[in-house]
Amino acid sequence: MFRLSEIAIDTAALRAQLARADAGACVTFEGWVRDRNGGKAVRGLAYQSYAELAEREGRRIVEEARERFAIAAALCVHRVGELAVGELAVWVGVSAGHRDAAFAACRYIIDEVKRRVPIWKNERYADGASGWLHPDDTPVA
């Protein structure tokens, strides 16, 4: 349901796991490493995590989505380690009987993962500096 990955995320394999005969909708979210943040040029980043706690909390979030929304299946994978600009950092997929539930559950999962899962981001900037960011992508003072 939720896992961390040190390697590239295989979106096709994940999407295939969402297929269900009772599902008429599939919604996915992909979060990529962008080249700018807060007006600064970004050349890459590193994600770090307390893996055991992150995976437990991530599974809890996906289970909450299954309980709150009428969905058939949900998955979330978040990268850890060094990522370059353009790489896929997080993937969420939800299948459901209808699109409304799939969209709502997908949004719930990514928002709660960003808010609650202990994954920390350190951006590396083009000027050689680096900085830790809060989940809302603001620099830590």
Rank of each mutant, 00 (worst) to 15 (best):
R3M: 04
L4F: 04
L4P: 06
S5M: 08
I7Y: 09
A8N: 15
A8Q: 15
A8I: 12
I9K: 01
I9F: 02
D10C: 02
D10L: 01
A13Q: 12
R15K: 14
Q17T: 13
L18H: 06
A19S: 14
A19Q: 14
R20D: 15
D22L: 09
D22R: 13
D22E: 15
G24S: 07
A25D: 04
V27D: 03
T28I: 03
F29H: 06
E30A: 14
E30K: 12
G31T: 06
W32H: 13
W32T: 08
V33K: 01
D35H: 09
G38N: 15
G39E: 14
G39W: 14
A41H: 05
R43Y: 01
R43V: 14
G44W: 14
G44I: 11
L45E: 09
A46Q: 09
Q48E: 15
Q48N: 15
L53H: 03
A54H: 00
A54G: 01
E55A: 04
E55G: 07
E55W: 08
R56E: 10
E57S: 04
G58H: 04
R60N: 03
E63N: 15
E63A: 15
E64L: 04
A65R: 00
E67L: 01
R68T: 01
F69S: 09
A70I: 05
A73L: 12
L75N: 00
V77R: 01
V77T: 06
H78S: 05
H78L: 04
H78G: 03
R79V: 01
V80P: 11
G81N: 13
L83Y: 05
L83M: 15
V85T: 11
V85H: 11
V85S: 13
V85C: 10
L88R: 14
A89C: 10
V90Q: 00
W91K: 00
V92G: 08
V92N: 10
V92S: 09
G93L: 02
G93K: 08
V94D: 12
V94L: 11
V94K: 13
A96D: 08
G97D: 10
H98M: 11
H98T: 09
R99I: 02
R99T: 03
D100K: 06
D100Y: 03
A101W: 06
A101Q: 10
A102P: 11
F103I: 08
F103P: 07
F103G: 05
A104E: 09
A104I: 04
A104T: 07
A104Q: 10
A105W: 02
C106Y: 05
C106K: 08
Y108K: 04
D111H: 03
D111Y: 02
E112F: 00
E112N: 06
K114V: 10
K114T: 06
R115H: 10
R116H: 13
V117H: 00
P118V: 06
P118K: 06
P118E: 10
I119D: 06
W120I: 12
N122C: 12
N122W: 03
R124E: 12
Y125R: 14
A126H: 11
G128T: 11
A129K: 13
A129S: 15
A129W: 09
S130K: 12
S130N: 11
G131P: 14
W132S: 13
W132R: 13
W132Y: 15
L133N: 15
L133I: 14
H134S: 03
H134D: 09
T138R: 13
T138G: 04
P139L: 13
P139N: 07
A141E: 12
A141N: 10
